[in-house]
Nucleic acid binder design. Structure first.
Lengths: 219, 219
DNA sequence: TGGATTATTATGTCTAGACATAATATAGGG
DNA sequence: CCCTATATTATGTCTAGACATAATAATCCA
């Protein structure tokens, strides 16, 4: 284990054990460097990792403080559907059902299939001002998510994950009874400040799950 | 925007736009440093961030390569329930329903309430060898998750998120009809290689959702 | 020609600064 | 005593190395 990883683990252990509590001020980076017998840069790297994990807050001059431990962060893996289904040894298919302009947006609805079984029903809005080329794309052959991935770099994304019973329309599209438990992923992406797309994907609850993990070594 | 962030954004843009494809080898860090007119450490920092985001693979001597873009990573926020409910201006309560030893594990079942409405039904296994103090804790007053957070540092966590209809037992505990769409969070944590706890939390779908976001600036 | 050994290269990690800047503490004047 | 200005401190970022090491390329010998 690298030196900075060991420093991070030591401080993390103190935070998780309660030896350090939210609001507590940590020793300065210079002090920690002297204490651990290493350079300030090594300590700073460990602190940056703790900050990234949401465990501490860093403020210039004021110092570093233990953060409120009200949110744990984990790395959520959001798979590309085509690749996910291929990895399961199954066949993927996208079916575009509707495509229409709505004001400044392009609205697309469609279904993702796994071996001819509907897996997810998707409704999407694409901001044409941000993605002019989308206006000329039919999305008959390629899923808009896959197309967007290939055509425009997004710089930030926000996901909301929830569970709900399928509405009558969703149920019909997914070929399940209304009210069936579905995992819903709502995702918005931006390029800088410009919105790229907003999508709501309704997954059959029995066919899809997501994985998130937290491992300090991943930093 | 810092220099390393700008380098990272430039490379990320090339990957997302398809200008760089999975398997492509990136220029060496020395080459990138010369190209951008900065130090190798600055480039290395940007590359570490790209690696952390799952966009590239780094191998000594071999170089850095664009990774298969089959999984996007986002930072999932896993809230502490008590704090989350307090933040909503509501009252939190934990009700322990069963507590029993089962082989080398302590099994605890209970309910999390929000303003006297059941929010989540939890079934949990705690590995006593890893957490000896748990054997003496009744969990009548404090939710095991909160207690574990205060008593043992965990070093890695794995979550699985899915949707399913409430089973009859779960429905009864949550005071909803059987089959109601629920968001299920299955979480396991470890301290080093030692398992700490495995928990399954079944949330009423209408009362709970999760948020995950990806923002390069958070690195 | 193939296998073993050695050299080389690129990333991984660390040090020791320098400089920028946000934030806090101190000092001085009204 | 309060407000403003200045000094100080701690983090934020960058440079320029050095050294470690994994992996690849080249060389040499049988």
């Amino acid at each position: 284990m690298s030196f900075d990883a060991r420093i991070r683990a030591a401080i993390e252990g103190d935070i998780r054990s309660g030896a350090l509590r939210p609001g507590d001020r940590l020793p300065s980076e210079h002090e920690l460097a002297a204490y651990h017998g290493c350079s300030r840069a090594t300590v700073s790297k460990a602190m940056a990792a703790l900050h990234h994990a949401g465990l501490i807050e860093r403020r210039r001059k004021a110092g570093s403080f233990v953060a409120d431990q009200h949110v744990h962060s984990a790395v959520l893996e959001v798979p590309d559907l085509e690749q996910l289904i291929a990895a399961r040894g199954h066949a993927y298919r996208w079916l575009c059902r509707t495509r229409r302009h709505a004001g400044q947006e392009l609205h697309v609805e469609g279904l993702h299939f796994e071996n001819d079984t509907p897996l997810a029903f998707e409704t999407r809005a694409i901001t044409v001002a941000t993605v002019p080329d989308a206006a000329a794309e039919s999305f008959a052959e390629v899923a808009p998510g896959t197309w967007l991935l290939a055509h425009i770099p997004w710089t930030s994304a926000r996901h909301r994950i929830l569970a709900a019973g399928a509405t009558p329309d969703e149920a019909k599209a997914l070929d399940v009874p209304a009210g069936t438990a579905c995992l819903i992923l709502e995702r918005s992406t931006w390029r800088g400040d410009a919105p790229v797309t907003r999508v709501r994907q309704v997954f059959r609850g029995d066919m899809f799950d997501m994985v998130a993990h937290f491992e300090p070594s991943r930093t």
